[in-house]
C-alpha cells in the first residue's frame, strides 16, 4: 500500500530516493511527457469550451489520475517511493527544509531566477527544462516574490467548509468547493501557490518543477478531507452537462477513467494522517 507522507517528515533516505527517481524519469524522457500533457490541457481547457484538467469540475479527479500515473512511473524506478505532499499552510517560507539543497533546492538567484542548488539545479547537469514556453532551459523559482503569502490554514478551513462540490457554470466563475480550492474565486488556494513559487510553476509547463507533484498531492489530500467532512456531498455534475466531464463521463487523455473511478483515493494510497496508513506502516 502506497502511503503518501508529509514532505517535512521524510528521512534523508526517503528524500534521496524521491529525487533520484525523479532524475531517472527525466533522463529517460518519461518526465517530459507529463509536462507536455499538462501544458496541452492548460492551453485547451477554456471556460466556454471543452475543459477537463482545469477550470472545471474534473480538475480534482483529473489531477488525481495524473499524479497516480506519475507515481506509478516513480515506483517503476524505485518501488519504495511515494509522492510526498507539501502542506503549504504549515511549511510556508523559503527557509522550509523542502527548499534545502538535500531536497528540492531553493529559490532562484536574483539575476535570472535560476535555481543554483540541489539535485534539480541546471548546473548539476541532470535536470534540463526541455518542454518550455521560452528559451530558458534552467529551472527557475522566485519564492514569495509575486505574491507574499501562501494560503493559511484558516483560508483552507473556510473552503473545506463549503458543502457543494461545484456548480454552474462549471468553470472559473463557479461558486463551490472545487473552484475555491482551484483558486479562481475567493481566497485563492491552488493558483496562489503556483504564483508564490514562481518560475516555471507560474506557467503552463508547471510540472517542470518537481514541487508541482507535492503541491498537487496536498490539493488532492484537501479533496479527501473535504469528502470526509461532507459525506452527503458528492461530485457534480451528475449527467448531461455540456463541455465538462460528468460523474460517469470519461476524461481525456486516458478515455478509460471517469471522475467516479477517482472518488475514493483509498483504492490507490493512504495519507500518513489516516488510520489505514498507520496500520500498514510497520
Amino acid at each position: 500500500m502506497t502511503v503518501r507522507k508529509n514532505q517535512a517528515s521524510l528521512t534523508s533516505e526517503e528524500k534521496r530516493a524521491f529525487t533520484n527517481a525523479v532524475l531517472e524519469l527525466k533522463r529517460t524522457g518519461v518526465y517530459d511527457r507529463f509536462v507536455t500533457t499538462h501544458n496541452g490541457f492548460i492551453m485547451s481547457d477554456t471556460d466556454s469550451g471543452d475543459r477537463v484538467g482545469h477550470r472545471s469540475p474534473s480538475f480534482l479527479p483529473w489531477h488525481r489520475r495524473f499524479l497516480l500515473e506519475f507515481e506509478a512511473e516513480l515506483q517503476k524506478v524505485d518501488a519504495s517511493v511515494a509522492l510526498p505532499y507539501w502542506d503549504w499552510t504549515a511549511d510556508r517560507t523559503s527557509r522550509s527544509s523542502l527548499w534545502a539543497a538535500d531536497f528540492l533546492g531553493g529559490t532562484g538567484r536574483a539575476r535570472d531566477g535560476q535555481v543554483m542548488d540541489g539535485p534539480f539545479a541546471y548546473s548539476a547537469g541532470k535536470f534540463p527544462v526541455n518542454v518550455r514556453v521560452d528559451g530558458r532551459a534552467y529551472l527557475r523559482r522566485s519564492l514569495g516574490a509575486s505574491v507574499a503569502e501562501l494560503p493559511t490554514k484558516a483560508e483552507v478551513d473556510a473552503v473545506l467548509a463549503m458543502p457543494v462540490y461545484d456548480m454552474a457554470p462549471w468553470n472559473s466563475a463557479s461558486n463551490g468547493f472545487r473552484n475555491h480550492l482551484e483558486g479562481w474565486r475567493g481566497a485563492n488556494l491552488h493558483n496562489r501557490v503556483h504564483v508564490w513559487v514562481g518560475g516555471q510553476m507560474a506557467t503552463g509547463v508547471s510540472p517542470n518543477d518537481p514541487v508541482f507533484w507535492m503541491h498537487h498531492a496536498f490539493v488532492d489530500k484537501l479533496w479527501a478531507e473535504w469528502q470526509a467532512r461532507h459525506p452527503q456531498s458528492t461530485y457534480l455534475p451528475a449527467a448531461g452537462t455540456a463541455n465538462v466531464v460528468d460523474l460517469n463521463g470519461t476524461m481525456r487523455p486516458w478515455n478509460d477513467v471517469t471522475p467516479a473511478d477517482m472518488l475514493d483515493h483509498r483504492k490507490f494510497y493512504a495519507f500518513d494522517t489516516e488510520p489505514a496508513a498507520a496500520a500498514s506502516q510497520r
Binding site: 496541452g40 492551453m43 528559451g135 503552463g204
Partner: peptide, 12 residues
C-alpha cells in the same frame, strides 16, 4: 525569447 507557439507545449 518565447518558444514557438504550440498548443501541445512543444519542445523548444
Amino acid at each position: 525569447t518565447l518558444a514557438p507557439f504550440s498548443p501541445m507545449g512543444g519542445t523548444a
